[in-house]
Design a protein around this nucleic acid. Structure first.
Lengths: 116, 116
DNA sequence: CGATTAATTAGGCGATGAACTAATCATTGA
DNA sequence: TCAATGATTAGTTCATCGCCTAATTAATCG
């Protein structure tokens, strides 16, 4: 999940995903759509691939990239469920928190007190 | 949109959102749950607020933060529409989710990011 | 009015990210 | 086999991020 959000934090990478939304493209074809060096784009592609958002397949001289459809949706879905108010049954932590707040009782979750 | 994804790229900030999923909390209450200085948390809160994901309201001595519910969902929705290969799978996923929720099904746990 | 508590601002510092050029690897085709 | 093309790896530079401590602003209370 960390890698996915990190990957999505770049507008270039989001744009690449948009380019790959409906077709596969070779690394060069992708790079050709940006005013940026090919190695830089290659780096972005590798970030996206590490995040499991796209996959590259080498065919002959070219590497064709395409989206891994499931993972994007699953990740967003997972996040929404965790952090969205209207999302479904509360994550334990948050539920406990809301509950505890109702009682006005503090608690130590994972943090340790900090000096100052 | 840029700011939103930037904000979400930090696990600390995502965790803050999770804490605020079902209740509001003061800056200090939030900071108390992390082993990190208050100024650092304050900075994270300001990033989240700049992204329009949360809002802080000063009441007396305290600043209470809560989520801005709409914007998070709208942003994710906008991105999904733009970058997802098909609109269909989303609906199917959503339908399955709703269905599953109707049955009171426990959730699949957080998937671990894959190695590569 | 001080003193205390909550929170933010300011400034500094190390780590990380993102870009480039140059070099290398792999495949194709004359 | 050798030149050309596609792509990645290596190595460098520069800006930004994220954390810290110290100082400042704002509100509460004796």
């Amino acid at each position: 999940m960390q890698r996915v959000f990190e990957a999505l934090s770049s507008s270039v990478r989001r744009k690449i995903l948009a380019y790959l939304a409906h077709t596969e493209l070779s690394a060069g074809e992708i790079a050709g759509r940006f005013s940026m060096s090919k190695p830089s784009i290659s780096q972005h592609l590798s970030v996206l691939e590490s995040a499991g958002l796209i996959v590259g397949e080498k065919r002959g001289q070219f590497v064709f990239y395409r989206q891994v459809e499931d993972s994007l949706l699953n990740t967003l879905n997972g996040f929404v469920q965790e952090a969205c108010p209207v999302g479904r049954p509360l994550r334990r932590e948050s539920a406990a928190l809301a509950d505890e707040r109702r009682r006005g009782e503090p608690d130590a979750d994972e943090p340790e007190p900090r000096r100052r």
